[in-house]
Design a protein around this nucleic acid. Structure first.
Lengths: 236, 236
DNA sequence: CGGTTTTTTGACAGTGTTCAAGTCCCGTGG
DNA sequence: CCACGGGACTTGAACACTGTCAAAAAACCG
């Protein structure tokens, strides 16, 4: 018996739902997005969506799957800088002719579409808010790495991912699909996979999470939030 | 005998020079900035320029002095998220009615002015590029905290500060004014001040830096860059 | 089933923190 | 002019957290 399809494949409605959740979208914006959805692009896992130093052709809206910005350090280790989830935007720079300042890689198979080049003020505002959210996620990542210990980093990240996925309708009741290996999570948290594994086991013993089969279930989230001082982001 | 004035107080020409260095400014943009400069605002050290959760009235251009975004964690420790230097912009959100998502505090006495609300395409582009640079600095901070050890974090940060100050004409020949205590630097690097102090001493013994009297002088910068894998940021 | 990737375990080394005390520097007030 | 006080820097010893290395167990994939 195979595992049931882990990701809801719904051709972008979740992604648009997320944009609509962070900013009003009028009929014009929705029509632009619907058109864009007719040209989905499938990217296999491990392929780069954006390469550092390359020009950005067009911002991309992630319809399905997980991607991440990352940077390699000379000694071969890598740091995941931020995750990019369905409904979020890759290459959202706010000005013309930009060069990518980091590499974005598909962590799972990813479906994207080109983001309509403006025209709609509502859509532009959604992009601006999405960009501001990206920035708050980056700041949260800095605080995580700078001032939380390994156990706290894990919980804090999981809470953030839950909230971000929930805004796209991809998480509820403390549960969400987490299609990542422990090694990838470790690379995001600035830890070794060995140590991350110990933190995961510790969290399991405490009843803070159940993680099996790409499926994450968080325990008492209010309690978890308080225990790591996690705050929910809002920009507008 | 008192210490000579450590900061060039020049009423904003350095700040405008930095904006002009990252994007062309036409006569219109320069005129707008000149007008803005006539209303400088002095902010004493330790005062907040922006408070988390408060509305942002207008983006501010830093003319002189150092500020930083920071966040406090419940146990009382703090993390400096990013530094804000002359010529850089506070509250540069790219959309209307935003709420600050972090606290910005003056690390020294700071002089700011309100940034003219658009009108000039050149100025808008400069703001967009400045925003993109802010993002690359945040990403660099994530990599620093996630994948560099204490000694490397220190050198990598100093190299970044040097390059940022140099683009405003405030650093050259490996030297710049660093009006920060070791404790503040430690808070930026996710270290304790005790450990940062040990790293500073180690760097001194190696001849990597001379730091006295708010004055920083870096040793062989090409060598330092290679030793920590530091890359110089460019976005356009 | 066989090879590969991912997770798990153990012993040990190393990096960074904590706590506590001491020093240096500088501005203030007697 | 010097004593005082506070902040910043420095030092040491003990300790905690995280990394390293190596290997085994488990899960996954074709």
């Amino acid at each position: 018996m195979t595992r049931p399809d882990p990701l809801p494949r719904d051709n972008g409605s979740r992604a648009i739902g997320r944009l609509a959740a962070i900013a009003d979208l009028d009929a014009e914006a929705l029509a632009l997005l619907d058109t864009a959805l007719t040209n989905p692009i499938m990217v296999p896992a491990r392929r780069e969506l954006l390469s550092e130093g390359r020009r950005i052709i067009s911002p991309l809206l992630v319809l399905d799957g997980w991607a991440a910005r990352m940077r390699l350090v000379p000694d071969g280790r890598r740091q995941l800088i931020s995750f990019i989830l369905p409904g979020e935007i890759v290459g959202n720079c706010g000005f013309e002719a930009p060069v990518a300042t980091s590499t974005v890689v598909a962590l799972t198979q990813v479906t994207v579409c080109q983001l309509p080049r403006s025209g709609s003020p509502h859509l532009e505002r959604a992009c601006a808010i999405s960009r501001a959210l990206d920035e708050t996620y980056l700041m949260a990542q800095v605080v995580r790495l700078g001032r939380l210990n390994a156990a706290e980093r894990l919980i804090d990240l999981l809470l953030e991912l839950y909230e971000r996925l929930a805004s796209a309708g991809l998480a509820s009741g403390g549960r969400f699909d987490l299609p990542l290996t422990q090694e990838v999570v470790a690379d995001a948290l600035g830890l070794t996979s060995v140590h991350l594994n110990r933190m995961v086991q510790q969290a399991r013993k405490r009843g803070d999470l159940v993680w099996a089969d790409r499926n994450m279930r968080l325990g008492d989230m209010d309690h978890l939030r308080r225990s790591v001082g996690h705050e929910i982001c809002k920009v507008a």
